[in-house]
Amino acid sequence: MQHINFILSLADSNLILSQRNAEWCGHGPVLEQDIAITNITLDLLGQARNFYQYAARLINETGNMPGHIATEDSLAYRRTEREFKNILLCELPKGDWAQTVLRQYFYSAFCKGLYFQLLQSQDQSLAAIAEKSLKEVNYHVRWSGEWVIRLGDGTAESKQRIKQALQFLWPYTGEMFMPADFENNNGIDLASIKKQWLLDVQTILEEATLQMPAEHIFMQSGGKSGTHTEHMGYILAEMQYLQRMYPDANW
């Protein structure tokens, strides 16, 4: 069950961030970037689906819920807020463009380290999903990293905005590296991912002429164990509306 919860947490973070980023669709600052963020959003959704499908298969194999068949849809649309295990960072409002690209950079740089370790996982299916996702994630890191540099080293206003985003988002970055109970002894070394992540972030922030925030401040947490921010309920209300209103509605 721990293993399933771990996979669900990966799926949830990707799904919720994809739902969030989707708010940019048709509202991007320029046409080209509207398409760029939407592409990334679709990548995240695709990764979430892979994780959900695999989690559903494992859940059904356990046979713990007779008469109930888990599917990617049931996992995405029929679970309650407390059952979602996404990190808080992913559910925060999209904010302005600075907040969106900085959050994307923080998250993607983390996923890069995580998926890289998952390549070595005993679980072949998980390793395969990680391998496929890693190609996409590498691009997300590059794209969002360049935007952080561009805004930080840009105009007075862009710098001000990315600084605000950094101040707002930073306390939510610690949760990525705090192992939840389902992340104990699963072969993932969060400490080493964190070390590399901090180095990567520092490099980007330096190039963006931004000050690296203090590492050891109070960090928000709770998402992995289902205690979410006040924003989460609204996301689910919108995302799950159709399946809640018309259960089993189909094309």
């Binding site: 046409l31 080209e32 398409i35 760029a36 592409n39 590059r142 360049e146 561009r150």
Partner: peptide, 17 residues
């Protein structure tokens, strides 16, 4: 054609568009 701030962004935009 597309708009971009620099060559790197132009290539990435082209990739996405």
């Amino acid at each position: 054609s597309l708009k971009a701030a620099d060559a790197t962004m132009a290539i990435e935009n082209a990739r996405d568009v």
